[in-house]
């Protein structure tokens, strides 16, 4: 558990360092995610096994399973913005709802349409992964 936490926080720190050094517009944790994914991918290629090693896997799964909780403190911040939201509630609410729904549907539809030709070909892999 501790070594898993070290890997996660270490990748985040590395991401922050890269961001600060190269003035990247992407936050440290997102860079850290790509770094760790790259490292795990290289490891899988070397060992021929794409399953994640034991201490990291349950720690990552535990965190991801409770990810919703982590958004609560930032979400409560909405009450601090209540003034602006109340003043322009109609454009804000319609735009948030409209653009979120449109983007959700467009992304999924484009993905769905472009995937379709190779669909049958993928079912074995999908079945294994789910």
């Amino acid at each position: 558990m501790t070594s898993a936490m070290l890997i996660l926080v270490g990748c985040q720190l590395l991401g922050e360092l890269l961001r600060a050094t190269f003035q990247l517009p992407i936050p440290g944790p997102v860079i850290g995610m790509f770094l760790l994914a790259l490292a795990l991918g290289l490891r899988a290629r070397r060992t021929g096994n794409d399953r994640t090693p034991a201490p990291l896997k349950p720690a990552a799964e535990g965190l991801i399973a409770n990810m919703g909780l982590l958004f609560v403190p930032a979400g409560v911040g909405i009450i601090a913005e209540a003034g602006v939201i109340r003043k322009e509630w109609l454009p804000i609410l319609v735009a948030v709802a409209g653009s979120t729904i449109l983007s959700l549907i467009v992304t999924a539809l484009v993905m769905h349409w472009t995937l379709r030709p190779t669909h049958a070909h993928d079912t074995d892999r999908q079945g294994r992964a789910s």
Binding site: M5, M33, R51, A60, R125
Partner: peptide, 26 residues
């Protein structure tokens, strides 16, 4: 609690890496 948003973002690398083959294909 808010601090853990960083590590959990990094942790998303785990499902991502385990499905690399699928991602690369698409």
């Amino acid at each position: 609690i808010h601090f853990l948003l960083g590590p959990v973002t990094v942790a998303l690398a785990v499902p991502l890496a385990e499905n690399f083959a699928l991602v690369r294909r698409h």
